[in-house]
């Protein structure tokens, strides 16, 4: 359905490089390792799944990828640029233009229409209104939501909401999509439909990093990381 961008870098070039990336907390005088020193390279066009039991550090890793938390130690390069130590404005700009996020609970803004929801990242990217709406509609059309632009998230099914969330993640055409258990709130059939969308995005050249509990989704991945007690290892 979609073609890889002609300007996309070669699929083997590293998109993300983690070196000794670590996240610790202190609780009651005890140092807790949410993520132990992790080295990882994610190349352009990869489909990475992150698996592990609850509390193992999957979400911590995803939040570090998404710059929603700062690492305690180590470096995080995104397209060769160290991004973990940036100030708030620069971090926000990276989140806005380089990273698309899809959440388990969709996190759509219920008081906005689905078109407005899709437009939110583009507002922060400073796109003109007309261009923004045009792109928002095209994205919704792409995911089978044409004609539903004025609907509110509460009027849609879970699968439709997740499709809106994916459309929103693609709004600024970021190179990487982070998905935190995107099928966790969906039934099996709808979950498979959503995975089909991710597979299609991967084929179009997007780099997908997905946290999941479901080992069946391993088959979609080109790369897999397993985490136990904060220790990440490629499998």
């Amino acid at each position: 359905m979609t073609q890889p961008s002609p300007h996309a870098p070669p699929p083997t070039a590293p998109l993300i490089e983690l070196t000794g990336l670590e996240k610790t907390y202190e609780a009651g005088g005890t140092l807790i390792y949410a993520l132990r020193a992790t080295d990882l390279i994610v190349r352009h066009g990869a489909f990475l799944t992150v698996m592990g039991p609850s509390g193992s550090g999957k979400s911590t890793l995803l939040n570090l990828f998404g710059l929603l938390m700062r690492p305690t130690a180590g470096t995080y390069l995104l397209e060769g640029r160290a991004v973990s130590g940036l100030n708030d404005d620069a971090t926000s700009a990276v989140r806005c233009k380089m990273i698309g996020m899809v959440f388990q609970s969709f996190n759509l803004l219920s008081h906005l229409t689905i078109l407005e929801n899709v437009c939110v990242p583009m507002q922060y990217a400073g796109l003109p209104r007309a261009a923004m709406r045009q792109r928002g509609k095209a994205l919704l059309d792409r995911f089978g939501l044409d004609g539903r632009y004025g609907s509110r998230p509460t009027q849609l099914s879970g699968g439709q909401c997740q499709r809106v969330a994916i459309a929103r993640a693609l709004a600024n055409d970021p190179p990487v999509i982070l998905a935190d258990e995107p099928t966790g709130n969906l039934d099996e059939q709808t979950g498979l439909e959503v995975m089909g969308i991710f597979q299609e995005l991967h084929r179009s050249g997007k780099t997908i990093i997905m946290v999941t509990h479901n080992p069946a989704y391993r088959k979609y991945a080109t790369q897999a990381v397993s985490i136990h007690d904060g220790r990440a290892c490629e499998t």
Partner: peptide, 12 residues
Amino acid sequence: GVRRALGARKRD
């Protein structure tokens, strides 16, 4: 939180 995750700056 959602807006910040989608790219809003503190000042936005």
